[in-house]
Amino acid sequence: MGVEVAISIWCLLVAAILPILAAFPAKLNKDFDNSRPRDPDYWKSGFRARAQAAQANGFEAFPFFAVSVIVGIGQGGNAFWIDRLAVLFILLRIIYIFCYWTDRATHRSMAWTAAFLSCIGIFTSPLWS
């Protein structure tokens, strides 16, 4: 006896947490000073810079994804497709983070583009339902 929650709503929670996880490995370094977590010198190059950039982009991508899910569901889009596109978005964002960490710019851009297009699909889903 519970409320059924769409998979896409759970994906909102995951998408909100992903940016934090993107930077987390860079904070595991013994040089990380938690009393100065935003020290620009710590984040200026290499893996640390890429992890921080992945985090920043995750925070940038989240609002469009969230609005897309809310609009898609709220305007009567097909829940089956919204859920699948939302899961696809999450998987692509995980690939995006991995590509950022491993300095694979072309693959990262491909993952970003596909994730962006999945948001477009979610947002416009009421038009093709």
Rank of each mutant, 00 (worst) to 15 (best):
I94T: 05
R48V: 10
I90R: 01
A6T: 03
S68V: 07
D83R: 06
N29I: 02
S68W: 07
I70A: 12
Q75W: 13
A54E: 06
I97H: 06
F123C: 05
L85S: 06
A23E: 09
A23M: 15
A86Q: 11
S8Y: 05
I122D: 04
I90S: 02
T102V: 09
L92Y: 00
L88N: 04
L88S: 15
E4C: 05
W10K: 13
V5N: 02
S129L: 01
D83A: 01
C11P: 00
D41A: 15
Q52W: 09
A49I: 13
L12Q: 13
C99E: 11
A61E: 07
G77Y: 10
A51H: 06
I90C: 08
W101I: 14
A49F: 04
K30V: 01
N78Y: 07
C11F: 07
N34F: 08
D33K: 05
A51F: 03
A56S: 15
W10S: 07
A26L: 06
D83Y: 11
A53P: 01
R48P: 04
I9C: 00
P19D: 15
P19M: 12
L117V: 15
N29D: 14
L85V: 02
I97Y: 01
V67N: 00
I7C: 03
C119G: 11
A15T: 13
R38F: 05
N57W: 13
I122E: 08
D103Y: 09
I7M: 14
D41H: 11
I97Q: 06
A105Q: 03
P19H: 05
F116I: 07
I120T: 09
A6W: 11
D33R: 12
T102A: 08
A23Q: 10
R84D: 10
K27V: 01
K44E: 15
V71D: 02
A6F: 08
R48C: 12
I73T: 11
A115Y: 06
A49M: 13
I20G: 09
Y100S: 15
A115S: 14
A49V: 13
R104D: 01
C11Y: 04
A22N: 10
I73W: 00
S109T: 00
S109R: 01
S68Q: 12
R48W: 03
T113Y: 02
I7Q: 08
G76L: 00
I7D: 01
